[in-house]
Design a protein around this nucleic acid. Structure first.
Length: 478
DNA sequence: TGAAATGTTGGGGCG
DNA sequence: ACGCCCCAACATTTC
């Protein structure tokens, strides 16, 4: 048996693209037939949220179209990868499985097991980094330890990292005809009864990702550092779900914005402000890799002794966007309606849940996990812990966002609130963030009553003082 | 990648 | 012209 004749399985996970894909490029370079496969793991831990499944459905369809055009359609299988991969390898006569690695702790351990299984079945297995600027473990401080503070991490990464693994989408793939595939419709990834996704305004897939990148470079990049703080405007890149699903390589994003700055389309400082956000994503992924319990446990362990409030009514009001604070409610409704929330508003709503309501950050994390199309284990846990004050390089315990001030500062005309909280739309800008203080004639002229829009569920001033008093105990115990 | 309280300064109104 | 007050604007400190 000549291994030259054998086919190569390309195991797609969260690298749903053809271009800049090191595993696929390596498979193509062998000159052997390609079997691209996606395996739906019903026991994935943590289980993907509803919004994530919505995205996956569309992105897989897009990937299949691209792969089919390139010559080798996507094969869909469900079950356990450690069983399905060797089985498929037997079916198609594969001598090699290539994949882009996942760096989350659970996946990491499992991939090692899978590679072992395959090798004992005589199938070679190779992993690549197709999702991060640098592999976790390669960015360490002088004493060989992972960085726990963002700025030195960022400096170290940006000074040493080199763009790599970029290249055009391959064409002319040869396939293994007759390979059986499941039907994606049978996976029921698209919600029905009810279909809550009708407001999702996204184009999942590699083409949509490239278009989003181009639009951002044409639009928001030149004034990114201020524009990204205005939720009513299209100032942020909206690339997060595309990056999460690997429809874009982060190096492609960094190279593209830097090239735009080089050619004068945007100030270099603005491009670097954006690159900094890509590096925050990197920081989260590296932290999660080194501290696998980040999603469950406080990075600063003294926070795990804190007794968060049990407040079902408060949590419910938060999830539904009925807290009585317009910017908070607008954000939570944008999330529910579109599967995404502007980052400035994420900070505001998270601070409100954790500091004003004193509800455990893990509850907010779980809600985001289910509702965000960009839900990412590293980003989600790192950012929630950052707001809660329990994370690495976290915001100090006394930093409490004032939802009214934040609204007035970053949504001064109230356009964001009007869009997502339509029952307040007729209020003048002067009162849009403080309907609870508006004169009654203003409220009645705008048709706002406690029935249409709730009074604040907590008084922020009192809630802030309560949070400071309670959280101070942690700082003292430290 | 806060907010609020407290402190400081300086201009203008006014006796 | 002067002192006094008010207060906005800005700076510093504290949580």
């Amino acid at each position: 048996m000549s291994s030259d004749q054998s086919s190569v399985i390309v195991w797609f996970r969260r690298d749903l693209r053809l271009a800049d894909n090191p595993a696929l490029a390596h498979a193509v370079a062998t000159g052997r037939p390609i079997v691209p496969v996606y395996i739906l793991d019903r026991d994935e831990n943590p289980a993907p949220g509803g919004a994530a499944k919505w995205w996956l459905d569309k992105s897989l369809k897009a990937l299949d179209i691209s792969l089919t055009a390139a010559g080798s359609p996507l094969v869909l299988r469900s079950g356990h990868a450690e069983l399905e991969l060797p089985r498929l390898a037997g079916e198609v006569g594969a001598g090699l499985v290539v994949m882009n690695r996942l760096f989350e702790p659970v996946a990491w351990a499992r991939d090692a097991e899978i590679a072992h299984e395959l090798k004992s079945a005589g199938v070679d297995c190779k992993g690549y980094n197709g999702s991060l600027l640098c592999s976790p473990g390669s960015v360490l401080n002088g004493s060989g330890q992972p960085y726990k503070v963002f700025t030195p991490f960022s400096k170290s990464l940006l000074s040493t990292a080199e763009p790599r693994d970029l290249g055009p989408a391959p064409t002319g793939l040869s396939s293994v005809p007759g390979t059986g595939s499941e039907a994606i419709e049978d996976w029921n990834l698209q919600p029905s009864s009810p279909d809550w996704s009708t407001g999702f305004d996204w184009s999942p897939g590699e083409i949509g990702a490239r278009r989003a990148l181009e639009e951002f470079i044409k639009g928001g990049l030149a004034r990114y550092s201020s524009g990204r703080d205005r939720p009513a405007e299209q100032g942020s890149s909206r690339l997060s779900p595309h990056l999460h699903w690997g429809e874009l390589h982060p190096w492609r994003v960094v190279e593209s914005v830097r090239a735009a700055a080089e050619s004068g389309k945007a100030p270099k400082s603005e491009a670097e402000a954006f690159v900094r956000e890509i590096v925050w994503r990197e920081f989260s992924a590296h932290l999660l890799h080194h501290f696998p319990r980040l999603p469950e446990r406080a990075f600063r362990p003294e926070y795990d002794a804190f007794e968060w409030r049990d407040d079902p009514a408060g949590f419910e009001a938060w999830t539904r966007g009925r807290t009585g604070y317009p910017i908070v409610d607008a954000g939570m409704r944008q999330l529910w309606t579109t599967g995404w929330m502007h980052n400035r508003v994420r900070m505001i709503v998270a601070s409100f849940l954790v500091k004003d309501l004193l509800i455990d950050w893990r509850r907010g994390q779980a809600w985001f996990w289910d509702t965000l199309v960009d839900a990412d284990l590293g980003n989600n846990s790192q950012n929630w812990q950052w707001i809660a004050g329990s994370g690495a390089d976290a915001s100090p315990f006394f930093r409490v966002f004032n939802p009214t001030t934040q609204g007035e500062k970053f949504d001064p005309k109230g356009d964001y609130v009007r869009r997502w909280v339509p029952e307040l739309a007729a209020l003048p800008a002067k009162w849009i963030h403080t309907p609870h203080d508006a004169p009654s004639d203003v409220l009645s002229a705008a048709g706002v009553t406690p029935r249409t829009y709730p009074k604040p569920i907590v008084d922020h001033k009192a809630a802030r003082e309560r949070a400071l008093a309670a959280l101070k105990q942690i700082a003292r115990a430290d």
